[in-house]
């Protein structure tokens, strides 16, 4: 598969906590970018789902954050950093079904405890780093082949 990528393409999106009206816009734009580059649709879907879940986590839990992407011939790397409350117990947070989301978030259809598992499931490489009271950084790599 020939991709229209020479060198690397990178960029970032600013994410604002609590802004449900535009939640998902960054992921949608990234999806469009990958489509235009000729990436296979199954790979795009995985990248889009992983990015969208990470973006929603910032919208739901943090005050603000930044989504950075780095695309090469081989892969896309997505890093999402937020200024949020941080995660106390990462292994617990990674468990499917575990969530600390408040009721209003669940009533909007989020907080099922599937976000982090969904990110991990859809990436080839997944790492998470968090400091309570400072924020969380998620890094995901999705290979193109």
């Amino acid at each position: 598969m020939a991709l229209n990528i020479s060198g690397a393409i990178e960029g970032s999106f600013q994410l604002i906590g609590g802004n449900f009206a535009t939640a998902g816009e960054a992921s949608t734009q990234l999806k469009l970018k990958l489509t235009n580059l000729g990436v296979h649709e199954d790979i795009i879907r995985r990248a889009a789902i992983a990015t969208f879940e990470a973006e929603m986590n910032v919208i739901i839990y943090a005050a603000a954050g930044r989504l950075h992407y780095y695309i090469t011939q081989q892969s896309i790397k997505i890093r999402v950093e937020d200024m949020g409350p941080g995660i106390e117990d990462i292994s617990l947070a990674m468990q499917e079904g575990y969530s600390t989301a408040p009721e209003w978030v669940r009533e909007m259809g989020w907080g099922a405890g599937m976000g982090l598992p969904n990110m991990k499931k859809n990436s080839d490489k997944f790492s998470i780093d968090s400091v309570v009271g400072e924020g969380t950084t998620v890094e995901m790599v999705i290979n193109f082949s």
Binding site: E103, R106, E107, G109, G111, A112
Partner: peptide
């Protein structure tokens, strides 16, 4: 339904509730 408020408002007595929701509530 996966929304607790919806079930509170609309489910009937002796209904079986089908959901993805696993929250304690």
């Amino acid at each position: 339904s996966d929304l607790l408020s919806d079930v509170m408002a609309n489910a009937g007595k002796c209904d079986i509730w089908i959901t993805l929701q696993t929250h304690l509530n």
